Amino acid sequence: MTAKVTLSFTDETIEDARRYAERDGMSLSAWIDQAAREKALRELFNAHADVVRRAGHDRLEKHALDDAREVEMVRSEFRGRRAAQR
């Protein structure tokens, strides 16, 4: 599903976004959607890492970060998004 929204950006931000979207062969909307999704995933991942640290599992954190299933899940999410946008 796609939602239409009205957003405001600084001139510098929108110029950069347009340039990067063109470089990546994407529409501006698709590029901004991807950028927002990547930021949301980083926020979720960082929140998870904070919980692990607070729980005292610091020694396990490196292993969790290196877990091949988690890495593949993130890669699949990005690949799926890119494929759907083209």
Rank of each mutant, 00 (worst) to 15 (best):
D33Y: 05
D67E: 12
V71E: 06
D58W: 03
A47W: 05
F45K: 06
E38Q: 11
K39M: 12
S27P: 01
H57G: 10
L7S: 05
K39I: 08
V5G: 02
R69H: 04
R37Y: 06
D33R: 08
I14C: 02
E38P: 00
R18V: 00
G80P: 02
E61Q: 12
R82D: 05
T6Q: 13
A55G: 12
H63F: 11
R82G: 00
A17Y: 13
D50Y: 04
L28W: 03
W31V: 00
Q34C: 01
E70N: 14
V51T: 13
T6F: 09
F9W: 03
R82Q: 04
H57C: 07
Q34F: 08
E70S: 12
I32Y: 00
Q85L: 08
M1W: 06
Q85M: 14
E72Y: 06
K39E: 12
G25L: 03
E61V: 07
I14K: 03
G80N: 06
L28M: 01
V5W: 08
H63W: 11
K4M: 08
E72L: 10
T10L: 08
V71F: 02
I32S: 02
V71T: 09
A36Q: 02
D67W: 15
K39W: 13
K62Y: 14
R69N: 06
K4W: 03
D24A: 14
R75P: 00
E43C: 02
R75D: 13
D66R: 14
R79P: 01
W31H: 10
R37E: 11
E70G: 15
F45H: 12
R81Y: 10
S76G: 05
R42P: 00
T2H: 15
R19E: 06
A35E: 08
R18E: 09
A84G: 15
N46C: 09
G25D: 04
V74C: 04
R19D: 05
M26R: 02
H48N: 07
R86G: 15
E77F: 13
R54V: 08
M26A: 02
A64C: 08
L41T: 04
D16K: 07
L41K: 07
T10A: 08
F9R: 00
A64P: 00
A36R: 03
T10V: 03
L7A: 09
H48T: 05
N46F: 13
R75N: 10
L60H: 10
A30F: 01
A55L: 15
Y20D: 08
L44A: 15
E15N: 09
A68S: 07
H48R: 12
I32G: 01
R86P: 13
E38L: 14
A21M: 03
R79D: 14
S8W: 09
A68W: 02
T2L: 13
Q85V: 05
K4A: 10
R81K: 02
R75S: 09
E72K: 12
T13V: 09
A47M: 09
T6W: 12
A21Y: 01
L60T: 10
R75Y: 06
I32T: 02
T10F: 03
D33F: 04
D33A: 11
V74K: 04
